[in-house]
């Protein structure tokens, strides 16, 4: 009897969680679809966003995201490879690096925003621009990306390394042709985490890439990210809630789409590396 009650209690909690989560997602979906139309994606916002669309905001979001990814991916992958493949002789240094990265991964995004404002916007003179916003986000996703890729590379069986060595492969060739493809699930997971965090970020962008909702002409222009747009519509614009929900729907769909795209690109790229070359 007690046993069955306990089982019911656990299932009840799970059901509660599921219904709450469905409530949130359902609300975003229903309220979002009510205001959404295809022209919403391709027109400029009017009446401070109450009507019109989100075209310039989407463009700014994609700018910021691509700057962040283009900076963070090569840098992060390089650091991860170095930590797992070359730093073996420097145990102490790589341990310190790992702990530092873990701490930085937990630092609140708003603190990255403070740094981005002081360093990129003011010290380097980039001002409120898509570039300083993107670079700030690159720094923000770097620690998580490095740590996931590194643990993925570390998890690759040492047999593969010895096999490559026995075949007389150069270490760089072994990394490029064997280790990186073998670690691809971890790299994919790191990429998904990075894209998710960068696309969802609001706090760090308000005072690095700014608030302007015009179409950006270059990365040095200020631009408003989608998440900032949602915040502005719901907090500062009375009657902006339905447009905010539509933007929220676009944001959630965008994150899911980008993640799927990133995963399949990665799969594709590595498949070619393994089987053709």
């Amino acid at each position: 009897m007690v046993d069955r009650l306990f089982g019911w209690l656990m299932s009840g909690c799970a059901a509660l969680v599921v219904s709450l989560l469905l409530w949130v997602l359902g609300d975003v979906l229903i309220e979002g679809v009510a205001h959404f139309s295809w022209s919403f994606l391709f027109t400029e916002p009017e009446d401070s966003g109450r009507s019109g669309g989100i075209a310039p905001i989407l463009v700014s979001t994609l700018w910021i995201l691509s700057i962040a990814l283009v900076t963070a991916l090569p840098l992060g992958l390089g650091v991860a490879v170095w930590l797992s493949e070359f730093a073996a002789g420097r145990r102490r240094f790589s341990d310190i690096a790992r702990v530092t990265l873990d701490i930085l991964a937990g630092v609140p995004s708003i603190v990255y925003g403070l740094f981005g404002n002081a360093f990129f916007s003011i010290y380097l003179g980039l001002g409120f621009s898509l570039l300083s916003g993107g670079l700030t986000l690159a720094l923000m996703i770097l620690p998580v990306f490095v740590r996931t890729c590194e643990s993925g590379l570390r998890a690759v069986n040492d047999e593969w390394r010895r096999g490559a060595l026995a075949l007389g492969m150069a270490r760089s060739a072994a990394i490029w042709h064997i280790l990186l493809p073998a670690a691809r699930p971890a790299i994919g997971a790191g990429l998904v985490l990075g894209i998710g965090r960068a696309t969802a970020e609001t706090a760090a962008l308000v005072f690095t890439s700014g608030y302007v909702d015009r179409m950006p002409e270059s990365p040095l222009d200020s631009g408003r990210a989608l998440a900032v747009h949602i915040y502005d519509l719901s907090m500062n614009v009375t009657g902006g809630d339905s447009a905010a929900y539509a933007s929220a729907l676009v944001l959630v769909v965008l994150i899911v789409l980008l993640n799927t795209l990133a995963q399949s690109l990665l799969e594709d790229w590595f498949k070619r590396r393994v089987f053709v070359s």
């Binding site: 949130v24 975003v28 970020e201 609001t202 998440a227 719901s234 994150i255």
Partner: peptide, 13 residues
């Protein structure tokens, strides 16, 4: 993976 602003918007409304 749902952005925090979306939770904020939902909480607010």
């Amino acid at each position: 993976g749902v952005p925090s602003v979306v939770f904020g918007l939902w909480g607010l409304t």
